[in-house]
Simulated scan of single mutants.
Amino acid sequence: MLKEFKDFAFKGNMIDLAVGVIIGGAFGKVITSIVNDLIMPLVGLLLGKVKFNDLFISLNGTHYATLADAVKVSAPTFNYGQFISTFLDFLIVAFVIFFVLRQLAKFRKKEAPKEKAPVSTKTCPHCISDIPVQATRCKFCTSELLTVSSVSGSIQ
């Protein structure tokens, strides 16, 4: 069982998956920083110096100056500003993934077509059955077939 686990854990695909998850986590942190530190402050400035992460509704009826004040007293809050930030995170990540997958699909289409396997059968002109290419007589109707000489290329 230990050998099977080792084979499973150290397969190339498993390591690729682990690297992908680690890079994805780091990518998520970068996107979150872009949204919280660059995009949301600009949107807040355009909308009248609003700080989106501090937008909330207190559900107990008491007014708090900031979300931090409400959290200090464990007040129930509806944090719609943080939801807007998280939703923007999602939209940006989804767009980037869409763009990357779209580019990968374009690269895959440009691959050279695979060579066809050599033809191993031909059709008998008399009974329309499939027979080996090298046959001189049809195995179904026993008709004699024309053959192409491989040396001269002439029909015999």
Rank of each mutant, 00 (worst) to 15 (best):
A117G: 10
C124A: 04
F140M: 00
E144H: 11
V133M: 07
D130L: 13
L104T: 05
K109P: 10
A117N: 11
T147K: 03
Q134I: 08
I131P: 01
P118R: 06
I97N: 00
K116Y: 11
R102D: 15
I97G: 02
K106G: 13
V133G: 02
C138G: 01
K122Q: 11
A112C: 07
E115G: 11
K139H: 13
L101T: 05
C138N: 02
T123E: 10
K106T: 15
T121M: 04
L91K: 07
L101W: 07
V119R: 14
V133S: 01
Q103Y: 14
L104R: 08
V96F: 07
P132C: 04
C127I: 02
A94F: 15
K109L: 13
V119T: 12
L145D: 01
E144K: 07
E115M: 10
V133I: 12
L145R: 02
P125R: 01
V96W: 01
V93E: 03
S129C: 07
L104H: 05
K116L: 14
V100L: 08
P113K: 10
Q134F: 11
E115P: 09
K114M: 14
T147D: 02
I92A: 01
P125A: 05
C141N: 02
E115T: 10
A112T: 11
D130Q: 13
K109V: 12
T142F: 06
A117Q: 13
H126C: 06
A117S: 12
F95K: 06
L101R: 03
S120I: 12
L145T: 00
C124D: 07
T123C: 06
F99A: 14
I92R: 00
L91A: 09
L146P: 06
C124L: 05
S120H: 06
P125Q: 02
D130Y: 08
V100R: 01
C124S: 03
F98I: 03
K110C: 09
L91I: 12
K109I: 06
S129H: 06
P118L: 08
A94K: 09
V96H: 01
C138T: 00
L91S: 08
L146Y: 05
C127T: 02
L104N: 13
L146E: 11
T147I: 09
P118W: 05
V119I: 10
Q103W: 09
F140I: 09
L101F: 15
A94S: 08
L91G: 07
S129M: 12
K110D: 15
S129L: 04
A94L: 10
V133T: 07
K106W: 10
